[in-house]
Design a protein around this nucleic acid. Structure first.
Lengths: 225, 225
DNA sequence: AATTTTTTTATGGAACCCATACCTTTTGAT
DNA sequence: ATCAAAAGGTATGGGTTCCATAAAAAAATT
C-alpha cells in the first residue's frame, strides 16, 4: 500500500472536543486539521484532500447535516458523525446522506480511532455498487457478468481485477505496467489482448471504444460517465 | 406474544466481558446465565432452555465454532457470535454453521441489545418460508421435496443442509471448504458431485445453471430472486 | 435384503492464461 | 505528401488448471 499517512479533518464547534480529537489522533500518527464550523470546513476541503472527516452533527444551524450531504455529493470523503448521546443507529440522521459511521458523545478516543481504522480498511476497496452501468452494458462484479441487451457475458478473474481497479478510478490512465501489476503479467502485447477482450464485453462497438479507451503512449482509461 | 422473559446464555472466557454482558442485559430485564467455556456451556444447555446464546468465537481451542455447530445441529437456539474486530460479514466463520448474527469486539452493550431484540423478533417467524420459489421450482424444506411442473424430487439430508445455509445467504459465495463444513466432507470432487445433483433438482437446464452457479476458483453461489 | 444416500474415481471438456505472429493505425522525420 | 518506425489490435494456439458428471463402490437407512 502506497499511502500510509492519513489526513483527517475534525469539525466541531466545541473547542475541548476539537482539541481532544486532534491531540489523540496526532499521537496516533494522523495529520489532523480542525475546523470550527461548516463554512470553515468547506474552505479547507477545497484546498486539502482529506481521508476522513469527523463531524459533529450538532453544530449551530443544520450545518452538520448539510455538510454531510454536500461532501457525499461532491467528493465522497468518508465521514464519521459525532452525535448526541441518546442516538441509536436507527435514529442518526445523516447516515441517510451517506455518512459512514457515527459515534455517540461522550466517546472514548480509542473508540474513535477504531472506527477510523475500520473505515480506512474499507477505503482500500471503495465499495462499488452491485451493478455498474456503462453505456448500454451493465456490469455486475458479484455475479461476474456483463449484460448487453439479451446477451450475458462472463467476467473472468483477470477481468474482474482490472474492472475493480479501473472502476474505482474512472478517468485515471492506467499504464500497461499498472495493469500488469494488477493481473501479474509482464508482456505488453498480452495486456493488449486482455484489454481487447474486455472491450468485446463492454463496448457496443469494440473497434471504436467509447468507454475503455487507449491513450497512445500511456495506457488505457475507463470512462463511466 | 406469550413469553416475555428471555433467558440468555453468555459464553466467554474473558471475565470482564462476561460480567459486562450479564450486568447490562440484566438491567434490561433478561435472565442471564454465564459459562466460561464450551464444556461449561454445553452442560448448562442440557439443563436450561435458552432463548439466545451469546458466544465468543475466539475462545481457546476451536471450541466456539464447534459449539455453534453442535447447537445448530441439535437444538437450533439462536446464536450471536462475538468476533475479532476485523471480521466482516463475509469473513465470519460460523455463520455457515448457522449462527444468526455476529458482533465485532469491542462492541457497545447497546448494540448487543439491539441485535438480541432483532433476533427475538425474527424468532417468531421462521427465517425461511415453508416454500421457496426458485425459477420454476418450488423448494419445500419441510416436506423435503422440490417440485417442477409435475415432477417431484426428494431432498436428501445433505441437500437439505446445504439448501438451508445457502438460502439464508443468497448471493454469498460458499467455498468448497464452507460447504464441506456444512456436510462434513473434505474431498473437493465429492462436493462437486453433491452440487451437480442439487442442480438436477433445482435447475431447469442443469448444464447451464441459472441459480446454483459455479464461481470458478472460489466456490458456488445460490441466487434466488 | 432392498433401497437410498454418500463417496470415490476416472475421464472429458471448459475456462483460463499467456505468448506470439501478423496486421492496422498513428506518428514524425524527411 | 511520403514513408519508415513505433505503437497498438487481435486471431490463434497450446499449456494448464479447474470443474462436471457418469459410473460404480461403499455406507447408511428402511
Amino acid at each position: 500500500m502506497s499511502k500510509n499517512i492519513f489526513h483527517i479533518l475534525a469539525v466541531d464547534d466545541d473547542d475541548r472536543i476539537r482539541d481532544l480529537v486532534k491531540q489523540y489522533l496526532e499521537e496516533n500518527n494522523f495529520i489532523v486539521t480542525t475546523a470550527q464550523n461548516a463554512k470553515d470546513a468547506k474552505e479547507k476541503l477545497e484546498i486539502i484532500k482529506f481521508d476522513i472527516i469527523i463531524l459533529d452533527i450538532m453544530m449551530p444551524g443544520e450545518s452538520g447535516l448539510m455538510l454531510t450531504k454536500e461532501v457525499k455529493k461532491n467528493m465522497n470523503v468518508p465521514i464519521i458523525l459525532l452525535t448526541a448521546k441518546g442516538e441509536t443507529r436507527n435514529r442518526v440522521e445523516g447516515l441517510e446522506f451517506g455518512a459512514d459511521d457515527y459515534l455517540a458523545k461522550p466517546f472514548e478516543p480509542k473508540e474513535l480511532l477504531l472506527r477510523i481504522k475500520n473505515i480506512l480498511n474499507k477505503v482500500q476497496k471503495p465499495i462499488l455498487p452491485e451493478e455498474i452501468h456503462i453505456g448500454s452494458s451493465v456490469i455486475n462484479l458479484k455475479k461476474l457478468n456483463i449484460k448487453r441487451k439479451n446477451e450475458t457475458k462472463k467476467i473472468n478473474p483477470q477481468e474482474k481485477k482490472i474492472l475493480e481497479k479501473m472502476l474505482k478510478y474512472p478517468g485515471k490512465v492506467f499504464s500497461r505496467n499498472d495493469i500488469g501489476k494488477i493481473i501479474n503479467i509482464a508482456k505488453e502485447r498480452t495486456i493488449d489482448v486482455v484489454i481487447t477482450r474486455l472491450r468485446q464485453k463492454i463496448e457496443y462497438d469494440p473497434k471504436n471504444p467509447k468507454y475503455l479507451q487507449t491513450i497512445r503512449g500511456e495506457g488505457y482509461v475507463l470512462w463511466i460517465e
